[in-house]
Design a protein around this nucleic acid. Structure first.
Length: 309
DNA sequence: CTTCTGCCCTGGGAGC
DNA sequence: TGCTCCCAGGGCAGAA
């Protein structure tokens, strides 16, 4: 599934291939894929037909293309969504094509932008851009980006310079995590705290930081929280660099999987296989209607007040 | 307010 | 071979 590194790769590809293009006819093949757009499918199409895509911006796993100072085409890829650039007069219609935007004047000659989504957890919408709450509350103003309304409650992600390791933003994040009264994995997955960390990278970050997923956030030392956040950032940066998920690769990578996902994961999806550090079989448990994977030896289960689900 | 659960959806694969 | 059922999970609504 597309994780933050894949979404960033898509954003970069969109910046090079469709920013500057003008949107022509918009075909909504599956109404559900624009369910979050106020006014329904025809309103969705009408809202961007004739508009020019002016930029490609990302926060966490949300992606948007501003079409005017106050409006943007918002996309979330969900579990299986892809944004595919097409060439030629009559591009192939993928079986899971949900929305097609015909384009003109694209910088590299693209004729369409396709939203393909097998499991339909993803969506597109045309929405208003609003000031972020922290900016509205008196932030510096020098870095006061507008974000889509539905993204207003989404925290900055670990690739955002504002929360880079060693900055005041990162210190504030560490403190915010420790104010929570929950387990560390729940906190990592809470998009209002820090965005862009999904189930895969949460398990990988916890493995690298040698922390069990149920460790109580308010019982962790600051250095431990820092370690797991650094690990999450590191894993995602490696995926971005090593994945080799060039935008061109999206033409052929129909699974939307990153190279990193297919390569060296230490914990996620490796139940019963040896921990790369100590050889102990990786354990798996149901957690939040998902799975948690961990090394029982490197990441021992906490007891008493140190444990929280 | 904070924390947590249930649900949305599809199709690949396992099991019978 | 064909059917049924389970599974993946981000984010939202609503409950506690």
């Amino acid at each position: 599934m597309p994780e933050l590194p894949e979404v960033e790769t898509v954003r970069d590809g969109l910046a090079r291939h469709v920013v500057g293009a003008r949107v022509g006819e918009v075909e909504v093949l599956r109404d559900y894929s624009v369910r979050h757009h106020d006014g329904g499918p025809s309103s969705f199409a009408g809202a961007i037909e004739g508009a020019t895509l002016t930029a490609a911006v990302r926060r966490g796993k949300y992606l948007w293309l501003p079409v005017s100072p106050g409006t943007a085409l918002l996309a979330h890829l969900g579990m299986s969504g892809q944004l595919l650039v097409r060439d030629g007069r009559d591009p192939w219609v993928h079986p899971h094509l949900r929305v097609r935007l015909h384009l003109s004047g694209a910088p590299t000659g693209a004729s369409a932008l396709d939203f393909v989504d097998q499991r339909t957890f993803g969506h597109l919408a045309v929405v208003a851009l609003v000031p972020t709450p922290d900016d509205a509350a008196g932030g510096r103003g020098t870095d006061a980006p507008l974000v889509p309304g539905p993204v207003a409650h989404i925290a900055r992600d670990l690739l955002d310079p504002q929360v880079a390791s060693g900055t005041p933003g990162r210190s504030a994040l560490i403190a915010a995590v420790r104010r929570r009264r929950t387990g560390i994995k729940r906190a990592l997955l809470d998009q209002s705290l820090v965005s862009g960390v999904g189930n895969i990278y949460a398990d990988e970050a916890l493995w690298r930081a040698r922390l069990h997923y149920a460790r109580a956030t308010d019982a962790l030392r600051p250095v431990e929280v820092a370690r797991v956040l650094d690990a999450a950032e590191e894993v995602m940066r490696e995926a971005l660099a090593v994945g080799g998920t060039s935008f061109d690769a999206l033409y052929v990578n129909v699974n939307g999987e990153s190279g990193y996902f297919a390569r060296g994961l230490a914990a996620y999806g490796r139940e019963g296989e040896p921990c790369p550090r100590c050889g102990t079989p990786i354990a798996r448990a149901t957690f939040m209607n998902r799975s948690a994977h961990w090394c029982p030896r490197c990441q021992p289960r906490p007891r008493g007040a140190n444990a929280r689900w």
